[in-house]
Simulated assay, not measured.
Amino acid sequence: MVMVRIDAENVIVEFIKDQVNAAGASGAVLGLSGGLDSATVAFLAARALGPERVFALLMPVAGATPPEDLDDAREVGSILGIETKEIEISKILDGYSQVLPMAEASPVVAGNLKARVRMTILYWHANLLNRLVLGTGNKTEIMLGYSTKFGDAAADILPIVGLYKDEVRDLARRLGVPEQIIEKAPTAGLWPGQTDEGELGISYDDANAILRGMEARMSRRDLAAEFGSGKVGLIERRVEGGRHKREPAPTPDL
C-alpha cells in the first residue's frame, strides 16, 4: 500500500494559507463533485482557512450526474460546515446547443464544454467574492493530460498536484473523508456511465506505478517487463500528448 509522506497534510495546509493570504484574497472557491479529489481539497482548505472562508459549488448536470455523487458532495459540505451552492448547469448547456452543432460533438467534446462551463461559474464567484479558485487535479491526472484545458485544469492554485491518485486516497483517510467517497470508482461525471479508468484505458494502480517508474528513470525495457509494453506505451503517449496542458502556450523567439 502506498502512503503519502507524513507531513503532506501540514505542507498543503500551509501552502493554501500562504497563497490565499499573499494574494490578498478573502478565501477560496472550489467545485465539489462528490469525488475523492475535490473532497480532499475541501477538507484541506477548511483546515487551512477555516470553514467560513471556503465556498463550494456543486454543479450537476441533469441525467449525467449520479444522485449519490450529489449526496456525497452535500455530505462533505455538511461535515466541514462550509458554505455550498448548487447550480444545475443543464440550462447553460442548452443555451450553447442553440448556437453550436452539439449533435456533431463526440462525448469528449461535449464533456469538455461541461468542464469549461463549470470553470466560468467558479471564476464568476471567485471574482465576486475576492477568492482564489482551488484546483482539484492530482499528479496522475496532470501527467496523463487527463483534464480539460481551460476547464477543470484552470485554477489559481493546485494543492494536491504533487500527489499521485493513491497518495490522495491515503491522505483522504487521514483527513476523515467519508469512506464511500474514498472507495467509489473515480469519474469526471461528464456523461452517464463514464469512469476515469474506462476512459484512460488503464487502472490508476498501473498508471501510478508506471509513472513512478518513469520518474525514477527506470528503463523502458524494465517497465515493459513488469507491466507490459502495451500499458507502458499507452502511458508514454498520454504523457507526451498531454504536455501542452502542463506547459505555457508556446511563443516565437522575437
Score class of each variant (00 low, 15 high):
residue 162 G to E: 10
residue 151 G to D: 01
residue 109 V to W: 08
residue 210 I to V: 10
residue 75 E to R: 14
residue 144 L to V: 00
residue 225 A to S: 13
residue 239 V to W: 09
residue 140 T to M: 15
residue 69 D to R: 15
residue 108 V to M: 13
residue 208 N to G: 05
residue 250 P to M: 03
residue 197 E to Q: 15
residue 253 D to R: 13
residue 129 L to V: 09
residue 111 G to Y: 00
residue 11 V to W: 08
residue 25 A to H: 07
residue 97 S to C: 09
residue 161 V to Y: 12
residue 172 A to G: 08
residue 229 S to F: 00
residue 82 I to P: 04
residue 124 W to N: 11
residue 231 K to M: 00
residue 235 I to E: 09
residue 105 A to D: 12
residue 136 T to Y: 10
residue 178 P to N: 07
residue 199 E to Y: 05
residue 27 G to P: 03
residue 182 I to S: 01
residue 97 S to L: 07
residue 20 V to N: 05
residue 13 V to H: 03
residue 166 D to A: 14
residue 230 G to Y: 09
residue 130 N to S: 12
residue 113 L to C: 07
residue 153 A to M: 04
residue 99 V to E: 13
residue 49 L to F: 12
residue 203 S to D: 06
residue 37 D to W: 10
residue 23 A to W: 13
residue 63 G to H: 06
residue 75 E to W: 04
residue 254 L to P: 15
residue 58 L to F: 08
residue 133 V to S: 04
residue 152 D to I: 00
residue 209 A to R: 14
residue 137 G to C: 10
residue 252 P to T: 00
residue 147 S to Y: 06
residue 173 R to H: 14
residue 13 V to A: 07
residue 8 A to Y: 08
residue 42 A to G: 09
residue 204 Y to C: 02
residue 34 G to N: 02
residue 239 V to C: 10
residue 211 L to K: 08
residue 30 L to E: 02
residue 52 E to R: 14
residue 23 A to D: 11
residue 106 S to D: 15
residue 36 L to F: 04
residue 100 L to N: 03
residue 223 L to G: 03
residue 119 M to C: 00
residue 31 G to E: 06
residue 222 D to G: 05
residue 175 L to K: 06
residue 117 V to E: 00
residue 158 L to H: 14
residue 138 N to C: 07
residue 88 E to R: 15
residue 216 A to Q: 15
residue 58 L to T: 08
residue 61 V to G: 09
residue 98 Q to K: 13
residue 93 L to R: 04
residue 90 S to C: 05
residue 79 I to F: 10
residue 34 G to Q: 03
residue 164 Y to D: 03
residue 15 F to K: 15
residue 242 G to H: 03
residue 174 R to F: 08
residue 46 A to I: 09
residue 150 F to Y: 15
residue 49 L to I: 14
residue 76 V to A: 07
residue 90 S to E: 11
residue 74 R to Y: 09
residue 114 K to T: 04
residue 206 D to G: 02
residue 111 G to K: 02
residue 127 N to F: 05
residue 240 E to M: 12
residue 48 A to N: 03
residue 190 L to Y: 02
residue 244 H to R: 07
residue 14 E to V: 03
residue 228 G to H: 01
residue 43 F to Y: 15
residue 64 A to E: 15
residue 61 V to R: 15
residue 228 G to C: 02
residue 8 A to Q: 04
residue 94 D to Y: 13
residue 114 K to R: 15
residue 234 L to I: 00
residue 247 E to N: 11
residue 189 G to Q: 04
residue 213 G to L: 06
residue 120 T to G: 10
residue 87 I to G: 00
residue 175 L to V: 11
residue 99 V to R: 13
residue 68 E to L: 05
residue 41 V to Y: 08
residue 34 G to W: 05
residue 9 E to A: 12
residue 99 V to K: 13
residue 163 L to H: 04
residue 70 L to P: 02
residue 164 Y to R: 03
residue 48 A to Q: 01
residue 17 K to M: 11
residue 248 P to H: 06
residue 177 V to M: 01
